[in-house]
Computed example of a mutant assay.
Amino acid sequence: MAPSVFITGATGYIGGDALYAVHSKHPDWSYAALVRDKAKGEQVKAKYPNVRIVLGGLDDFDLIKEEASKADIVIHTADASDHEGAAKAIAEGLGSHSKERPGYWLHTGGTGILTFSDSDAERYGEYDPKVYNDLEGQHELTSLPDHAFHRNVDKVVLKAGTKHSDVVKSVIICPPCIYGPGRGPVWQRSRQLPTLAQKTLELKKAPIIGAGKAIWNNVHVHDLGDLFTLYAEAAAAHNHDAELWGPKGYVLAENGEHAWGDAAKAAAEAAAKAGYIPAPETTNMSKEEAWEVADFQALSWGMNSRGKAFRAKKFLGWQPKAPSIWEEIPELVKREWEALQQN
């Protein structure tokens, strides 16, 4: 019997691409998508006629709990790393499954959780040698400080997948800076890099926070979609390898890293080469100035978030193959320029 999938965020960037990736390989599976807006639900339905639209939002606890209880696999991407109520609803819903029919939870985290050291020290734009590791250093990732960004929701997922590991098989898929055009039915734009390119075009100079030496990992959204697919397939095959779920189910999803100063310079160079700005100039900003430009998105350009993705490669054979961030930046700048011309 084909597995049933309940997905949140199908109209968003990550969820839209995850739905595309999984559905493309498994159109015969049963799908239900939580959608807040009826018109957007119709867009999802137009592209995927066999997807059942569940109208509701993340605050609809009982609705989410019910859908999670009925699904074999939950792919949670809609504000997943920050909405604690929705996570608790999924945990309760999946908790009604049985040992004979466990529920599988593919939860979207975010490596913003690794920026807590910079936030604590009020340190922006400086290099940090600390690099996390989701294989040998997995316990460290599941024991981060409670005040770290996203940590409150991480704890809900980890508790469900650890305390009730025979019934709930959970994994936190934790992407860093995501880039590339999404393939979802509604939203195809990410945040950090597009906003950097947008502000470069508006200011006619690329913004650099502090010294520009802070480093983040990155991943193409198509490679991230492939990872969701591999995990969904593991769930459908009832692959209960302890290295994939529960206490060890914390997976970094990266394929390289960049210094934010270098990314800003690349955006300025691409914009100048295309004739969108006069010259490939940059401008250094303080934390306060960056906040005025693009609030937390801009602050993230000054913080470090570094980790190595070994787990999915070793146990699922995940092999990122999409274009690199440096190959993508010129096209990204072009898309942002075209969007600005339409406004």
Rank of each mutant, 00 (worst) to 15 (best):
S4D: 10
V5Y: 02
F6V: 01
T8H: 00
T8P: 01
A10H: 01
G15R: 05
G16C: 12
Y20P: 05
Y20S: 12
V22C: 04
H23Q: 14
H23I: 04
S24H: 14
K25I: 02
D28I: 06
Y31A: 10
A33H: 06
V35F: 05
K38W: 10
Q43R: 00
Q43N: 00
K45C: 04
N50Y: 07
R52V: 11
L63V: 11
I64L: 07
K65N: 08
A68P: 03
D72L: 04
I73N: 02
I75F: 05
A78F: 08
D79M: 13
S81L: 07
H83K: 08
A86T: 08
I90R: 00
S96D: 06
L106R: 00
H107K: 00
L114C: 15
S119H: 10
S119D: 14
Y124Q: 07
E126H: 14
Y132I: 08
D134C: 10
L135K: 12
T142K: 11
P145F: 15
A148K: 10
K155T: 14
K155N: 15
K159E: 15
K159M: 08
A160P: 02
G161A: 03
S165D: 05
D166A: 09
K169E: 03
S170K: 04
S170Q: 06
V171Y: 02
P176S: 12
G180I: 08
V186K: 03
Q188C: 08
T195V: 14
L196Q: 06
A197H: 03
Q198V: 13
K205L: 09
A206W: 07
P207N: 09
G212Y: 01
I215F: 04
N217Q: 10
V219S: 08
F228K: 02
E233G: 04
A236H: 05
H238I: 09
H238N: 15
H238E: 14
H240N: 07
D241C: 04
A242C: 09
W245Y: 09
P247W: 04
G249R: 04
Y250E: 05
Y250W: 11
N255I: 01
N255F: 01
G261V: 01
A270W: 02
A272E: 11
K273L: 05
I277K: 09
P278W: 03
P280D: 02
T282W: 12
A294C: 08
G302D: 07
M303P: 08
A309S: 09
R311H: 09
A312C: 01
L316M: 01
Q319K: 07
S324T: 10
I325H: 03
E327K: 03
I329L: 10
P330Y: 09
P330I: 11
E331C: 11
E331F: 13
K334D: 15
E336K: 12
